[in-house]
Amino acid sequence: MSKHDTVKAYFEPKVQELAGRLLFNYSPDEESIGMITDYSDKVVKSFVTGRKRKAYGLSFIIVRPYSTDPGDDLNLEAMNFAQAFMDWIDQQNQTKSFPDMGRDCTVEQIEVLQNMPNLAAVNAEEGIARYMIQCRILYTDDSENQFRRK
């Protein structure tokens, strides 16, 4: 199983609970949550033993209904929905509920790289807005560690 498969499988149950199917590297013009990969296996730090700290970067694109009516709270509800998903990711980090990145990998942290969702795009004609949440998973990879126990 690739890291892409692992990360998608990790987030999929929560996304299914909130919005149905998790879309991988795709975000349509309808209510949905898409997971867009930014980078994988990016080396953040190398150790003399051969162990490496790596990062898996991803963004979530949350498509929600949008209103041009200043009298309703639809846009506020959409922002709160995206914020709640971001808070859930933070909670997974706090409880150290991490994806299994493989035999030689140990996840250290899932971090959200911002303090609130970005309003990334609005299509007022179609009545939708896209909110973006950027994250990364930090993990150590011991596969090249010359001192690890076998």
Rank of each mutant, 00 (worst) to 15 (best):
1 M>A: 10
3 K>V: 04
5 D>F: 03
5 D>M: 08
6 T>E: 06
6 T>P: 03
7 V>N: 03
8 K>V: 15
11 F>E: 01
11 F>R: 03
11 F>S: 02
13 P>V: 05
13 P>D: 00
15 V>L: 08
15 V>G: 05
15 V>R: 00
16 Q>W: 13
17 E>A: 15
18 L>M: 14
19 A>M: 09
19 A>D: 02
21 R>N: 09
22 L>N: 02
22 L>A: 03
23 L>W: 07
23 L>Y: 07
24 F>P: 02
24 F>D: 10
25 N>M: 04
26 Y>F: 07
28 P>E: 05
29 D>A: 13
30 E>M: 12
30 E>F: 12
31 E>P: 00
31 E>S: 09
32 S>K: 01
32 S>V: 00
32 S>Q: 01
32 S>G: 03
33 I>R: 00
34 G>D: 06
35 M>V: 09
43 V>L: 08
45 K>Y: 15
45 K>M: 15
45 K>H: 15
45 K>E: 15
46 S>A: 14
47 F>H: 14
47 F>R: 12
47 F>D: 14
48 V>P: 14
48 V>E: 12
48 V>Y: 02
49 T>R: 07
49 T>N: 10
50 G>C: 10
50 G>W: 10
52 K>Q: 15
53 R>W: 12
54 K>W: 08
57 G>I: 05
57 G>Q: 04
60 F>G: 03
62 I>D: 01
63 V>L: 02
67 S>L: 07
68 T>P: 05
69 D>F: 02
69 D>S: 11
70 P>F: 10
72 D>W: 05
75 N>E: 05
75 N>T: 04
75 N>V: 06
75 N>A: 01
76 L>G: 09
77 E>H: 05
78 A>S: 07
78 A>L: 04
79 M>D: 11
80 N>T: 13
82 A>V: 04
83 Q>A: 15
84 A>T: 13
86 M>E: 08
86 M>T: 05
87 D>F: 07
88 W>H: 11
89 I>M: 05
90 D>G: 11
92 Q>A: 07
93 N>F: 02
95 T>Q: 03
96 K>H: 12
96 K>F: 09
96 K>M: 12
96 K>A: 13
97 S>E: 08
97 S>N: 10
101 M>T: 03
101 M>N: 04
101 M>H: 00
102 G>Q: 00
102 G>M: 06
102 G>K: 02
104 D>R: 08
106 T>Q: 11
108 E>R: 13
108 E>K: 12
108 E>C: 08
108 E>Q: 14
111 E>W: 06
112 V>H: 01
113 L>E: 11
114 Q>P: 02
114 Q>T: 11
114 Q>D: 11
115 N>T: 12
115 N>C: 03
116 M>E: 15
117 P>M: 05
118 N>A: 13
119 L>C: 06
120 A>W: 05
120 A>E: 10
122 V>S: 01
122 V>A: 00
124 A>V: 11
126 E>Q: 14
127 G>S: 12
130 R>W: 04
130 R>P: 00
130 R>D: 01
132 M>Y: 06
132 M>V: 08
132 M>E: 10
134 Q>V: 08
134 Q>C: 06
135 C>F: 01
135 C>Y: 04
139 Y>K: 06
139 Y>C: 08
140 T>M: 10
141 D>R: 09
144 E>C: 09
145 N>W: 02
148 R>E: 15
149 R>F: 12
149 R>E: 15
149 R>M: 13
